Computed example of a mutant assay.
Amino acid sequence: MSTKERKHPAPPRYDEAFKAGAVRMVTEQGRPSREVAAELGICIDTLRSWLKAAGAPSPGQADRQNRDARRLRELEAEIRALRKKLEEKDGVIDILKKSVGILSKP
Rank of each mutant, 00 (worst) to 15 (best):
R80W: 06
E74V: 02
L103A: 07
L51Q: 02
K89A: 05
K4P: 02
E88A: 10
K98Q: 02
T3L: 15
A77K: 13
D45L: 03
R24S: 11
Q61I: 13
R71Y: 15
T27C: 13
D68R: 05
R31T: 08
R31Q: 04
S104G: 14
I42D: 01
G41L: 12
D63P: 02
G30D: 00
L72T: 14
K89V: 09
G41V: 13
D63C: 01
S99Q: 09
L47A: 04
E28T: 06
C43A: 14
A17D: 13
N66T: 02
R73Q: 07
A62V: 02
Q65N: 04
L72F: 14
T46V: 11
K97N: 12
A62M: 01
G41P: 02
P57W: 06
P59A: 10
K84E: 12
E28G: 10
A22Y: 05
D15H: 06
V26M: 01
A38N: 10
K19I: 03
R13V: 14
R70L: 10
K84T: 12
D63V: 02
T46L: 09
K85G: 01
G101E: 09
G91C: 14
T27E: 04
G55N: 07
E5S: 08
P9T: 05
I102P: 03
R24Y: 08
M1C: 15
A17E: 14
L40H: 02
E87V: 06
G30I: 00
E74Y: 03
N66D: 10
M25R: 08
R67N: 08
S2Y: 13
G101S: 11
D45N: 13
A54L: 07
M1R: 14
L47P: 00
L47W: 00
R48Y: 08
A20E: 06
R6C: 11
E35F: 03
V92K: 07
S33C: 04
A22H: 04
R80M: 13
P59E: 04
I44A: 11
R31V: 09
A20M: 03
G55V: 01
K7R: 14
A38C: 07
M1P: 15
L72P: 02
P12S: 07
A10K: 10
M25W: 04
K98W: 01
E87D: 15
Q61C: 12
M25G: 09
